[in-house]
Design a protein around this nucleic acid. Structure first.
Lengths: 156, 156
DNA sequence: CTTAATAGTTGAAGATGTCAATAGTTTTAT
DNA sequence: ATAAAACTATTGACATCTTCAACTATTAAG
């Protein structure tokens, strides 16, 4: 019982043979695998709150005080505007966020978290924090900071 | 013309407001965004060769000399076995890989790259290398190595 | 030798991704 | 001022990806 392992993801056993493949040296492959593992974990931990990483991301940005428009959410999350519609619809129906037409530009709608949304976000953030701890369990604090910085520089 | 930018992905402008959000500090979000940008770039560069990152990964492992079975490919690439079937079907029909029933265990089929497959892989690897250079353009050689190592440690 | 487990395959159902078209609004050009 | 062009959110269609439950052939366990 070395790991609490709320979410079980089988580590590759007997695949050491493949670890030497040139593919494993490619950033593209490594980010894809890290993301697959990470999102599976995070989704599992968010499931009890009826959230997925997507809806969590929207909720988080909505509650951040930045008051993003849907267009901005789409650009920032690299999603199609139509997907943002669906995500905001879901959150709004649950009373977690609200749409406000921007008085400056009545075409765009600004998304803001409600009090209920902020309460749920607090729990959700704890869940993703836990997922992150699981993911980076092998890394020291400085290594985590390094990884964060390097990722930030290739993610924007 | 600071970037050749074969693939155009709009950088977030005017979204500095969102960069301060707590979400941006989360590894989960950063890997998701890095992976979205990276796979879009890689897919665009692989498109002329009629490959996607998925089929490229299978081709690469098939040509690596490791002679993986389909089950091993599924586990290593974190894909459902049925998806491996489809991927190998596509590559096999193009004469890029072949299935060989393992004499040790006639249930499992070992995937090996053909000469034609290895030729295409050479071009494909150049393409993903180019994608990687685009992705990590801002990083020094040591930073790239650091990122690779850190990713490897959270990706397995 | 019977039973249970495994590898590959097929097909279905749901989720995601991509794209075109539309209505309402703002910006630009005339 | 008016007309044309551009932009935001929305809807709906369609392809792709994901997930899962069967099924066959083969191997392993009891």
């Amino acid at each position: 019982m070395t790991q609490p392992s709320t979410t079980e993801i089988p580590p590759p056993e007997g695949l050491e043979r493949l670890l030497g493949s040139p593919l494993v040296a490619e950033i593209e492959f490594l980010t894809a695998r890290a993301r697959a593992l990470g999102s599976a974990r995070a989704n599992a931990l968010l499931a009890p709150l009826d959230l997925k990483i997507r809806s969590y991301a929207v909720l988080s940005l909505a509650c951040s005080g930045a008051a993003p428009s849907q267009r901005e959410l789409a650009e920032f999350l690299l999603l199609d505007p139509s997907q943002i519609v669906a995500l905001v619809d879901g959150l709004e129906q649950r009373g977690l966020v609200k749409r406000e037409t921007d008085p400056q530009d009545r075409r765009s709608k600004v998304i803001k978290g409600t009090a209920k949304g902020r309460r749920l976000l607090a729990q959700a953030a704890a869940a993703t924090q836990q997922a992150e701890d699981q993911a980076m369990g092998n890394l020291t604090a400085t290594e985590r900071a390094q990884l964060r910085d390097l990722l930030r520089r290739i993610a924007f």
